[in-house]
């Protein structure tokens, strides 16, 4: 379990990034961490790993204070950062160098994912394209079988087939004891993957709901003209018409459009939160 209590963090004395941030994350879910540029999504992931220290407050993962960078905890966390440096060695050598740090590393799973992504195991890392490098690191991260998997913009740089492969690979290996946090701007790529939505704005968590709850409570309706009915809490223009959010009154769970939801929450968080 991840427990963030009263977190305060800033890069400089003048501006505060997080102020009294509270967040608890439970096992068995894939969380989507959403927010505008500069709201601190990547910073929050780094704070969880102990790569930044809170100015105040406490972050514990399975009871370990993240600041301590306890190796027993770190071997159960894999962080796929948006940027990474890969050495000038073969993928096989890279695995030989890095895998001993992850006791649950599954070599056959790694080979299988790499095959799915169509990346040669004998390839030299520095000679791979950005997308191929990303696929290799994603394959490595999933093969570590760590309890915690933090991913910062994982689909950036992936081609269209790879995005779908990524979703399949991630879901097929997902366990009930795992917590996956995906920080992203590419919500559409992960629409069917995310089980819980967390939105950060102005240093606080302004939205934190399970997608299953959103499916029950919200209705996303497409129409040719803008519907200004009293039940509509948010509406925006989309190709071919409008999409609006209203309370779900028919009792059947509908599909959640995460991008529209995100815009609605940023626009008027109170209205959306009141519906749920």
């Amino acid at each position: 379990m991840i427990d963030i209590q009263n977190l305060k963090f800033s890069y400089s004395r003048k501006t505060t990034l997080f102020e009294n941030l509270e967040l608890q994350l439970q096992e068995g879910k894939i969380y989507g961490l959403l927010g505008k540029n500069g709201t601190g999504k990547s910073t929050l992931l780094k704070l969880l790993l102990g790569l930044h220290f809170p100015k105040d407050g406490l972050i514990t993962i399975d009871g370990h204070n993240s600041v301590k960078r306890n190796p027993n905890l770190l071997e159960d966390i894999f962080f796929l950062s948006e940027d990474y440096e890969l050495p000038n060695i073969s993928i096989a050598s890279y695995v030989k160098a890095q895998s001993p740090f992850y006791p649950k590393f599954d070599h056959s799973k790694f080979a299988e994912i790499l095959k799915t992504f169509e990346v040669e195991k004998e390839a030299i890392l520095s000679q791979l394209s950005y997308g191929q490098k990303k696929k290799t690191v994603i394959a490595f991260g999933i093969a570590t079988n760590t309890k915690y998997l933090f991913m910062d913009e994982p689909t950036n740089g992936l081609d269209i087939p790879s995005k779908s492969q990524f979703r399949k690979v991630l879901l097929s290996g997902f366990r009930d004891d795992q917590i996956i946090i995906i920080s992203t701007h590419q919500i559409r790529d992960l629409n069917q993957l995310i089980e819980s939505v967390i939105i950060i704005e102005d240093g606080k968590i302004i939205f934190n709901k399970d997608v299953s709850v959103l499916e029950e409570k919200l209705s996303f309706n497409k129409s040719l003209s803008q519907d200004n009915g009293p039940s509509i809490v948010y509406s925006e223009l989309m190709p071919g018409g409008y999409i609006s959010i209203a309370p779900n009154t028919n009792g059947e769970p509908g599909e959640v459009e995460l991008e529209v939801l995100f815009n609605a929450v940023i626009n008027n968080p109170k209205a959306i939160n009141q519906l749920i």
């Binding site: 790993l49 790569l51 960078r69 190796p71 770190l74 071997e75 966390i77 962080f79």
Partner: peptide, 18 residues
């Protein structure tokens, strides 16, 4: 030397002492 390098090395599952 680089923020990415620091991130990768510090997040390696080994203690600061090790």
């Amino acid at each position: 030397k680089s923020a990415t390098g620091r991130m990768q090395y510090l997040s390696l599952p080994a203690s600061n002492f090790e």
